[in-house]
Amino acid sequence: MMDTILQIRQLEKSFGRRKIIDKISFDVQAGEVFGFLGPNGAGKTTTLKMVMGFLQPDGGDIVINGFDLKRHYETAMGSLGGIVENPELYQDLSGRVNLKMYARLHDGVTNDRIMEVAAMVGMQGRLDEKVKKYSLGMKQRIGLAQALLHRPKLLILDEPTNGLDPAGIRELRDILKRLAHEEHVAVVVSSHLLSEMQLMCDRVAIIHLGRLLGVRTIRELTDLSRQTTVYRILTPEAQAAAEILRPAYGEGIGELSEQGLDLEVATDRVPAVIRLLAMKGVDLYGVTRLESSLEDAFLQVTGGGLNIE
């Protein structure tokens, strides 16, 4: 059974005359990790800040767990937890006091729950130290603990992997996946890195210049990018290689250069291409897969028909 936890309808926001968010609508279900993908400045943080009460939307509706944010602000916000950019805690207070202060603003958060959440993020041993003695990673753990204290139905993390080391990123990923898949929390994560999204998310919304270009499952995205990918064949004889490949892969031949040629081809055909070129005596220095850019990916996803000026 799927519950819609976050509903966004026709959301609009301008700063001055500049339109930052232009009629964005999407839903997030319970139990999924939802990625919010787009280049810097696309409007990811602005959208999430409107959901978290920092900014007032100029138009549109935000419904959290069935409650409209405008009319039932406190009830709606009660089922939301989140971190914007870096968690900012009170430096002169201990981690425990920070958590307690935050717990006081929610109903039904016990001391046991504080310890439970602290254990979940691995901070139970250092709760009584002052926050200013924590490392950035530790602050982020306390921030996450704070966001989870009141068992939110919707967890929003804006660029959560910023400043984390690879081990930290993996740990965060595991925690988020467990929250979504075992505790049925709807998790929204924003990022500008597709690779990160691919490892973490179930669905991804792609946003560019304030407009939503589409929402796809991560499987759809990766399938598509697996089907046709651009490979760069490194060879000094690019022109000759192009002639050899033209009969079979003519439509996939891209740019020719001194280093070699780009070829758009299904991944499972790559061995055949290499074999063919080798047989014809072309000198091969290597074949690299070009990372398909974000725009390429969503152009593919959305059929390439969108004008993204």
């Binding site: 978290m52 009460g53 920092f54 602000y73 406190e74 009830t75 709606a76 916000m77 009660g78 939301l80 937890g81 989140g82 914007v84 950019e85 870096n86 968690p87 900012e88 805690l89 009170y90 430096q91 935050y102 603003l105 929610h106 704070q146």
Partner: peptide, 14 residues
Amino acid sequence: ATGSIKSLIIAPVR
């Protein structure tokens, strides 16, 4: 300035 207002804004209080 320190950003600690964020944890207040995100709390369910008007």
